[in-house]
Amino acid sequence: MEHLIAFPSIGLEMTLNRVAFSLFGKDIYWYGIIICAGFILAALYVNARVREFGFTSDHLVDCLILCVPVGIVCARLYYVAFEWEYYSQNPAEIIAIWHGGIAIYGAVIGVVAALFVYSRVKKLSFAGLCDLAAFGLLIGQCIGRWGNFVNGEAHGGPTGLPWGMSIDGADPVHPTFFYESLWNLIGFIALHFYAKKRKFPGEIALLYVAWYGLGRAWIEGLRTDSLYIGSLRVSQVLAAVSCLAAIALLVRQYRRIRVRKAFYQPSEAEKAEE
């Protein structure tokens, strides 16, 4: 349960136990605690901004009740689907999520699907809900990746860079969990300040997809635990495709806005309000 994590070039070394404590004979893992912390912070942040996007705290609670279980199930199903050779021989392990094995893209797909259904039922803006979800995902991913650090997983291949991370005495590797956490933090800060200037509903969500996809496509190429289809890294391909698609949609929307402004002449009353 313990890992010796070291950063040899900077003389830092620590022993980390995956188990935080035991409760009634059940081990409580740091990974779960860190994920929960990320979820709580994401919910608090989104709740603080929910009215800016035209929603209420009640809408947020409804979305959380729906999206959290759907996201967890889809994250697991995504992982199982691409490791089917193992799980087809060990079907009892499919539901053993506590043994590890979830994928963030599965969670994202599940959350988006759940938000779409909720928006149709409640007659709310699907694009606006996705904007808010983008903030929550960035916060959750930024913090959640540190659970991988405690577990000594989600790292890259060998590296001679000064920040190379050694696990249990092995040669230093890329701390890709940190790369992704930092990438998400930068994205969150940028979108936090940009949000008040958003030009159309769904813009924040598309910027998130483009930003995360760009970073994940690069970082995934460094990892040693990728899910594959043949020789292709599934998440790397999905990240690159989603990034390009988001950029294309953003460019189209920005062009439409420019054209609309070029041909639209505001009335005197509208000019006075400005």
Rank of each mutant, 00 (worst) to 15 (best):
E85A: 12
A37C: 12
E270H: 08
D27F: 04
P175A: 10
L238R: 07
L238M: 10
G147T: 10
G110A: 02
T159Q: 05
D27T: 08
H99I: 07
I257A: 14
Y264S: 15
W211P: 07
V46S: 04
R255C: 12
K26I: 14
C63Q: 06
L124Q: 08
S22D: 05
I186V: 15
L191W: 07
L60E: 10
Y264I: 09
G213Y: 03
L132R: 06
A262P: 07
L137H: 03
R252D: 15
I143L: 05
L222N: 11
A6Y: 08
Y212W: 08
G156W: 08
V70S: 04
I5N: 04
L23H: 07
F178A: 11
S57D: 14
I97S: 06
L244C: 13
E274D: 12
S226E: 12
Y87H: 09
A248Q: 10
R255V: 08
Y78F: 06
I102Y: 00
E268I: 15
E274Y: 15
L232T: 06
D27K: 09
A127K: 11
L137S: 05
A81C: 05
A37H: 01
D131E: 08
G147L: 10
V112Q: 01
I72G: 12
G187L: 02
E273T: 14
E153V: 13
V61Q: 13
I186G: 09
H174M: 11
A269L: 13
F39R: 12
L232Q: 11
I94Q: 04
F135T: 09
G164W: 02
A113V: 05
V50S: 03
T224E: 11
G71M: 03
I35Q: 10
P175R: 01
V112Y: 03
A42K: 02
A133S: 05
L206I: 04
R18N: 13
N184E: 02
V50N: 02
L115F: 04
R255I: 13
I143T: 02
W183V: 03
D131M: 10
E153A: 07
K26M: 14
R223V: 00
H59K: 14
T15A: 14
G25H: 00
F188H: 04
V241F: 05
F55Y: 08
A190K: 08
W183K: 04
I33R: 07
I229T: 05
S267P: 00
G213L: 04
I10E: 06
A170H: 11
G169M: 02
V68R: 01
A37S: 10
A6C: 11
E83D: 15
A37E: 08
N90F: 08
A92D: 14
D171L: 14
R216T: 03
L191R: 01
G213S: 11
I10S: 05
D27W: 04
G202P: 11
I10D: 00
A205E: 01
N184I: 06
G71C: 04
C130T: 09
A170G: 13
P162C: 06
K261W: 12
G106I: 01
T224Q: 14
F149K: 00
I72V: 12
N148E: 09
K26C: 12
A262R: 09
K26L: 15
Y208N: 03
R260M: 13
R233M: 10
I10W: 08
L227C: 03
T56L: 00
H174N: 14
G157V: 09
P162W: 14
